[in-house]
Design a protein around this nucleic acid. Structure first.
Lengths: 345, 345
DNA sequence: CGCTATACGGCAAGCGTTTGCGCAGAGTGG
DNA sequence: CCACTCTGCGCAAACGCTTGCCGTATAGCG
């Protein structure tokens, strides 16, 4: 039933020119093969009259370009990733690109599956926005995709042979830890992220380094976590039991910090008076907790824009940029304060 | 440079069968034209050996099916929408569909642009997840898309000639208002959403109805808002100036409620002791505010799943479902309480 | 044994574009 | 006036797959 839409053949007929001419004026390839202004006008007029819409599938097949990029994230419903995707979409849509999202739930298997499907699906580029693991699983797929001419760019995805925008997770964590140290904290716990996830590990490394440089040991202070709110809540008893009690806790991401805040409140501990809590990421809700969360902010949207720009550039034939990077910054709110003055009594 | 990938022609040659046979076993059209088990095995083996990946662009061109759906949202970085998208993706990916996102920033013009681009881009379905306006702008585009055979389904998008999953915005708002009434509140302000947005208007209508049924007037109690956190914050002074002072505030969405909470705290007003605040939506961060927000929860992810299932069904040739709907529920947390007992001493 | 289904598979015509190549005619410099 | 270079445009071959239409065997049936 679907009414046949107009094709360039219809336009060619109606304008009295050849298919190639129509194609050339419609797809902007005029720069290489000039078209007379009057011819072009006729074509354009016919196209408009026929309400012509190019068939992107046909274009893709013929040209090898699909005007689409795929972005792999852990979970699109996580504000961390949806913010990156928004940045990507901003520059994509400004350049007539479409973006399709793939949530992998931090599962290497699902990631590989998506990568595999990308082998069929027409995309010009793939953005690996999902954090990677120490041991990358989809290496072969990535390689074969690259071989096919797909440009792949990652964010915080070292360990893969692709250009990557670097997030200063380690530096950011170090700064935050130093901030805590400067506030006077000496017993600072760290709630770690999912094991193996480089993003999480880098933050842990930054924390460790700061402690080491301050001549402190992190022994017994790093608690297992998995980036969920529940994890942050779950560790509260451990925190309380520690002796001497920790005076500050640094969560590897905001969600855990927020969970921790909730757990602490439930336990009747007041933040930051009795214990300071800081996070990493600066998700939107970090400013609405009580107290508002001190955290390290990552310019997520800008990262998205940057990575998409990079994709576009490479698609345009330019070589991969040497150093993409996004600096994190400390944002001090009210969940961290100096520890309660010294020793009891 | 891109190494040519294997095509069905290669497989046909290697397996000693015809193109059609290969196509049939690989694309599952065997049900209609049976293929011998041994032939099929040979084909499969060759495909595997050649590391074959179907070319979806070619498939789309030849078959008219693209295995992709587009979803239009106001803003993918808004948890409300990213949650819906996640639900969509869940069932899409389980059915080998890809989903591409389009953020319109609540701008009818951008929505039309995206709709227009969908005329070129190969998608089998379009989901209008972005709330609509009283006066729909993209009607022509929608119609022409439908005519081309694209299935379009909306969420809370009445006013368009498409099946839509109904969110009980009005009922939910009425319930919430009734809850406040029951708590003893009589002066309940309402922070409205963007003018013209049906989702927002429906909630306002629900609030009004509840008040009316209680014999109360809403005059002077509905404040202009736009769904942003800032809007919620901005109205605080008005709230405080009202005489007699309102004892409860109902924001048309959570973001405004949260902003309001922040504004109230800044003004030294304690919630819910001095004034109750409730929202609508139950975004994830609603549970982490202080006090945790009483709000009406919308099963966003399930809505996403439902709408995608509907798309799939229609793609399968079934008629549009008569009544898709998603019931909202009240979730009582701690931001609403009975008003301070009666009149001042 | 003849006849009709049925199982299995090939042919070839598209699907709508892009693009390398070829070819006129109009300038241009010598 | 010639050899050339641009312009401006058409031809037709892909791009990789699906699918309607036709054969063949083979089996089933009376």
């Amino acid at each position: 039933m679907a009414k046949g839409r107009a094709t360039i053949a219809d336009i060619a007929r109606s304008a009295g020119v050849s298919l190639s001419t129509v194609s050339r004026v419609l797809s902007g390839r005029e720069s290489v093969i000039p078209i007379g202004p009057e011819t072009r006008a006729r074509v354009l007029a016919s196209a408009a009259a026929l309400n012509y819409r190019p068939n992107q599938a046909a274009r893709t097949l013929a040209s090898g370009r699909s005007q689409a990029v795929a972005v792999l994230v852990h979970d699109i419903s996580d504000p961390y990733f949806s913010e990156i995707v928004r940045g990507i979409e901003d520059v994509a849509s400004a350049n007539q690109y479409m973006v399709l999202v793939c949530s992998t739930d931090r599962d290497p298997v699902r990631e590989r599956e998506y990568l595999l499907r990308m082998g069929s699906f027409p995309t010009d580029g793939i953005i690996l926005a999902a954090g990677g693991f120490e041991e990358e699983a989809g290496l072969d797929e990535v390689r074969s995709l690259i071989e096919r001419g797909v440009v792949i760019v990652g964010v915080a995805r070292h360990g893969l042979p692709i250009p990557t925008v670097r997030i200063s997770n380690e530096e950011g964590a170090r700064e935050m830890a130093e901030h805590l140290l400067q506030l006077g904290h000496r017993r600072i716990a760290f709630i770690a992220g999912p094991p193996g996830l480089t993003t999480a590990n880098d933050r842990l490394a930054g924390y460790r380094q700061a402690l080491r440089e301050a001549g402190l040991s992190a022994d017994g202070l790093v608690l297992a976590g998995d980036f969920t709110r529940e994890a942050g809540q779950r560790v509260v008893p451990h925190l309380l039991r520690s002796t001497p009690r920790v005076t500050a806790v640094f969560a590897a991401n905001d969600k855990m910090a927020i969970g921790c805040l909730a757990g602490l409140r439930a336990a009747g501990i007041v933040v930051p008076d009795e214990v300071s809590v800081v996070g990493f990421g600066d998700v939107p809700s970090a400013q609405d907790t009580e107290p508002p969360l001190t955290t390290v902010t990552i310019p997520l949207r800008e990262i998205g824009r940057q990575v998409m720009r990079e994709v576009l550039q490479q698609l345009g034939g330019q070589p991969p940029s040497a150093a993409l990077s996004a600096p994190t910054t400390l944002t001090i709110r009210r969940s961290a304060a100096p520890p309660r003055s010294g020793k009891p009594g």
